[in-house]
Nucleic acid binder design. Structure first.
Lengths: 164, 164
DNA sequence: GATAATCCATACAAAAAAGTATTGTTTCAA
DNA sequence: TTGAAACAATACTTTTTTGTATGGATTATC
């Protein structure tokens, strides 16, 4: 259960853009410098984010990258999904669920499915509600928001219980 | 943010052992059959679990594997850690924290560290408290326990707030 | 325009993960 | 005591991920 390089570095690059003032852009060399990554590698991430339309670009000399939406409107889940290029994310946590049911040996009665579903449910909610804007705020505030999300999640599980 | 093959398949094999009655063992061919995996592959997982002393083995014909402790005493975190062989797990979620601080470009002020820490804190708590015995109980009960863990987690974050 | 700095795209190389094969050791049972 | 079935260990192959290199397109500036 780990974070891929693409996710980690790509997200960090996206955060760099979040603290950019309106109208400005940041070039790949600048981002690479700030994050200690190669320019080529950064370019690769940014291309993925651009294709997902999370980032807009200005070409030519003096060009660069900027978020195409306000940082508060971009969830971490969107960024992570874009970087993973639609392979697997969020609730599609486990290999037992690659889309086709044959990929899961005991699709109907997978011993670990309930576990994954419950864990990934939280992860998905957390990443969906946390935005790029949140990441550039003081740690204390990130913590507050996390508590709020976790608290809501408990509430949702209670509702689910009643429904059943 | 994905689950490795080792984690998924290895955990499923461990769960097979959890529903085994006292004194019995399950052979690699049997586990492989039940999980739809190759015998060689299953053997690989089991070796890791044995080395972590989570599993005991009986050699020779009629041999096999069994949990070395009661299923309720084996946390999923222990199993997952054993399968990952001490690479990275739990709170050491992100690549920025591979042990040596140089591996993180901006160690003191990593933009995504607070986020990872908060998310992985939940994951760690969840996997630490959930046991192999839990996974073979009805989904409803797994859900109940999850809610309980999540609820405690919110409480702990509140305490953390007061402390600061 | 020419030039330089940038994005764009894809191809390539290296490393890690996933999965298989093989060889050896143990032990039951005929 | 011999054969078969199982664990033990490691080597090997394939696939995926990670990271680099290269060639082209775009545009500000001189």
């Amino acid at each position: 259960m780990n974070v891929t390089a693409l996710e980690e570095y790509g997200l960090r690059c996206a955060v760099q853009l979040a603290s950019l003032s309106e109208g400005k852009t940041l070039s790949a060399p600048e981002i690479a410098e700030r994050e200690g990554l190669s320019i080529e590698y950064v370019s690769k991430f940014m291309l993925l984010l651009k294709r997902a339309e999370l980032v807009r670009t200005v070409r030519g000399i003096k060009g660069g990258f900027a978020l195409s939406r306000a940082p508060g409107e971009v969830s971490l889940k969107e960024v992570l999904d874009a970087l993973n290029g639609r392979k697997k994310s969020g609730s599609e946590f486990c290999k037992s669920f690659t889309g086709k049911s044959e990929s899961c040996v005991r699709f109907g009665s997978c011993s670990i499915r309930p576990f994954w579903d419950l864990l990934s449910g939280y992860v998905e909610e957390f990443t969906s509600r946390m935005t790029l804007a949140d990441l550039i705020r003081p740690e204390e505030e990130i913590r507050d928001k996390t508590r709020s999300i976790a608290s809501d999640h408990v509430g949702q599980m209670r509702k689910g219980e009643m429904r059943s």
